[in-house]
C-alpha cells in the first residue's frame, strides 16, 4: 500500500517533468527536443530547452515540493488540517519584498533584485515572528504572530499599490502576485534550490516529533520533544522553503493546503509519512498546473496561481463535504 504510493507519486513526478519539458509553444518534436537538451546539438532548440523549458520544469517541481512539504509540516505542527504555509506570514512578507522591488524599479534594473528583495522580506518576517512568539514553545502565540505579520504585509502591499505612480506599475505588481513560472532562468533555479533543499532537510528531520504531537503538546514534551526547538525548526524550514518559492514564482495558493489533505488518508494519517508524500504530491500538482496554463490558453499567459486557486478551491470544498459526511468534522 505505502510502497505503491511512493512508486506511484515518484513515477507521476517523472512523467510530468518529462511532459513539462516536451510541451511548449515552440512545437519541437520530442526526440529532437530531448536530443537538443542533452547533447546541445541544435542551436535554437538547445536554447529553448536549456534556457526556457528546463528551468521552468525544475522550478515547477521545486516550488511544488516546497509548498506541499511546508503545508504538511504546518498541519502536523498545528495539528490542524486547515493550516497552510502562508499562515506564519512568510509568503505575504516575501510578496511585499518583491512588490517593493517592482515599485522602486530595482526589479527592472537587475534580474535578481526581485527574488532577493522577496527573500529579504521573508527573513524580516521570520525575525518579527520569532520575536513576537516569545521564548516558550507554544503554537498559539506562533499563529497569532503569523496572522499579525500577514495582515501587516498585506496592508503594506496594498499601500504600495495605492501609491503606485501609474496603472502600468500597478498592473505589473498585480500580475506578479498572481504567481507564474514563465520566463524564469537557471539563475532562478540556482537561487531557490539551496533554500528549498535546506528547508526540506530541516523539516523532514522533524517527522517523528510531528508524530509525537498527535498526542498533544504536553504528551509530546513528556516523550522527549523539545517544543521550543521544534517550533524554531518549523519556522526556519517553512520560511526557507516558502520564502524561496515565493521569490521565484510569486504567490501560489492552495497547494500547501490541498496536497497534504488529499494524501493524508493514503499514508494512514501519520504526519511523518505525510511530509515526503506531500513534497512529491506538491511537485505533481504544480507540474500539472504549469502544463495546464500552457495548454489551455497558450496565447493569454494564464497565471499559475490563478489556476491552482480555481482548481484547488472546489477540490477543497469537496474534501470538506466528504469529511463532513463521514462525521469527522
Amino acid at each position: 500500500m505505502s510502497r505503491a504510493l511512493w512508486v506511484g507519486l515518484g513515477a507521476l513526478v517523472a512523467v510530468l517533468f518529462a511532459a513539462s519539458l516536451l510541451i511548449g509553444p515552440a512545437g519541437l518534436a520530442p526526440v529532437q527536443a530531448l536530443s537538443a537538451l542533452v547533447w546541445g546539438d541544435a542551436l535554437a532548440e538547445t536554447l529553448v530547452m536549456r534556457e526556457i523549458r528546463l528551468p521552468r520544469a525544475i522550478l515547477a517541481m521545486l516550488v511544488g515540493a516546497a509548498l506541499g512539504l511546508a503545508g504538511a509540516a504546518m498541519q502536523g505542527y498545528l495539528r490542524n488540517p486547515l493550516a497552510e504555509p502562508g499562515l506564519i506570514g512568510v509568503s505575504g512578507s516575501a510578496a511585499l519584498g518583491a512588490v517593493l522591488a517592482l515599485q522602486t524599479g530595482l526589479a527592472a534594473a537587475h534580474v535578481l533584485a526581485l527574488p532577493f528583495a522577496a527573500l529579504g522580506g521573508a527573513v524580516i518576517a521570520v525575525l518579527v515572528i520569532l520575536a513576537l512568539a516569545g521564548p516558550r514553545g507554544g503554537s498559539i502565540t506562533l499563529i497569532l504572530a503569523g496572522i499579525a505579520v500577514s495582515a501587516l504585509a498585506g496592508a503594506l502591499t496594498s499601500l504600495v499599490l495605492n501609491l503606485s505612480p501609474n496603472p502600468f506599475a500597478a498592473s505589473e505588481i498585480v500580475f506578479w502576485m498572481m504567481g507564474s513560472l514563465q520566463d524564469r532562468s537557471m539563475t532562478h533555479v540556482w537561487l531557490s534550490a539551496p533554500f528549498i533543499a535546506l528547508g526540506a532537510v530541516v523539516l523532514l528531520a522533524q517527522g517523528r516529533k510531528f508524530d509525537a504531537l498527535t498526542l498533544g503538546e504536553d504528551t509530546a514534551a513528556s516523550m522527549g520533544v523539545h517544543l521550543g526547538r521544534l517550533r524554531l525548526a518549523l519556522v526556519m524550514g517553512v520560511a526557507s522553503m516558502v520564502g524561496a518559492a515565493t521569490a521565484v514564482a510569486g504567490a501560489i495558493g492552495f497547494v500547501g493546503l490541498v496536497v497534504p489533505h488529499l494524501l493524508r488518508p493514503l499514508v494512514g494519517a501519520r504526519p511523518s509519512a505525510l511530509l515526503p508524500a506531500s513534497a512529491l504530491g506538491g511537485a505533481v500538482l504544480v507540474l500539472m498546473a504549469d502544463i495546464a496554463v500552457r495548454v489551455i490558453l497558450p496565447t493569454r499567459d494564464l497565471k499559475l496561481g490563478v489556476l491552482t486557486a480555481i482548481v484547488g478551491a472546489p477540490l477543497f470544498l469537496h474534501l470538506i463535504y466528504k469529511t463532513r459526511r463521514q462525521g469527522q468534522l
Binding site: 495539528r79 517523528r208 508524530d211 509525537a212 504531537l213 498527535t214 498526542l215 498533544g216 504528551t219 516523550m223 522527549g224 493524508r264 488518508p265 494512514g268 494519517a269 501519520r270 504526519p271 469527522q328
Partner: peptide, 17 residues
C-alpha cells in the same frame, strides 16, 4: 488528544518513540 485519524496500533506505537 488524538489529532489525526491514525490506527490504534500506530497510536500505541508512538509510545516507543
Amino acid at each position: 488528544e488524538i489529532a489525526w485519524p491514525v490506527t490504534v496500533e500506530n497510536l500505541i506505537a508512538l509510545g516507543r518513540l
